[in-house]
């Protein structure tokens, strides 16, 4: 079994969460922090197995909530709600096309915070909401959409460079080669 891909995806989630908590530049410039976990979930849903998607939803959600004032575990379901439907339909999605990656990343980045807020509001929490939330939502959606092709490219490169690839067998067999020659009669 190839363990490289799950390790790569979970390591990326680990770094993404840490980066979001420590790197404040997007918040200072745009007024909102861009969440890359939904875009990473899109990559995982299109390229990894179901257990990896489950692990990413659970661990990514828990890590995110650890650094946030969110109740622990509230981000797990929104992340899985993105990854699971994409996984079920992934044979129909053009995963190599950057536009498809952008659309999926943007959609995932729009749905994830909306679902999380819905869960927070239904759980008697009082998050900071206002007209500015719409701007933050737009920034998160656009940021996630733009980040998705970059994540796809980076992860594929890492996978190709560091992970082992299945060996392809050639159909050429020397013992079945047709020898062509001119026979003199």
């Amino acid at each position: 079994m190839n363990f490289f891909q799950p390790i790569l995806i979970l390591s990326a989630a680990y770094l993404v969460v840490f980066g979001e908590a420590t790197f404040a530049l997007p918040r200072q410039l745009l007024g909102a922090q861009i969440d890359l976990l939904p875009a990473l979930m899109v990559y995982a849903a299109l390229n990894a197995s179901l257990p990896v998607i489950v692990l990413l939803a659970v661990l990514g959600g828990l890590w995110f909530d650890t650094f946030s004032a969110n109740p622990l575990g509230v981000t797990i379901l929104p992340l899985f709600a993105i990854g699971f439907p994409i996984y079920l339909r992934r044979d129909l999605i053009l995963r190599e096309a950057p536009f498809a990656q952008f659309v999926l990343g943007a959609t995932a980045s729009a749905i994830a915070p909306a679902l999380t807020l819905l869960m927070l509001l239904s759980g008697s929490q009082e998050p900071l909401l206002g007209w500015g939330t719409i701007w933050q939502w737009i920034v998160m959606t656009a940021g996630g959409g733009l980040a998705a092709p970059v994540i796809f490219s980076l992860m594929s490169r890492c996978d190709r460079a560091l992970g082992y690839q299945p060996q392809t067998e050639t159909s050429f067999r020397a013992d079945r080669e047709i020898q062509r020659s001119r026979k003199k009669l």
Partner: peptide, 28 residues
């Protein structure tokens, strides 16, 4: 998979604040 994620999420969300604080501490 769906059942496992739902179970884990509901379990963690229903934990008392003190327990979730400890888990946050461990994860941090």
């Amino acid at each position: 998979a769906l059942g496992a994620v739902l179970f884990v999420a509901v379990l963690i969300l229903s934990l008392p604040t003190r327990a979730t604080d400890r888990i946050k501490l461990a994860l941090g």
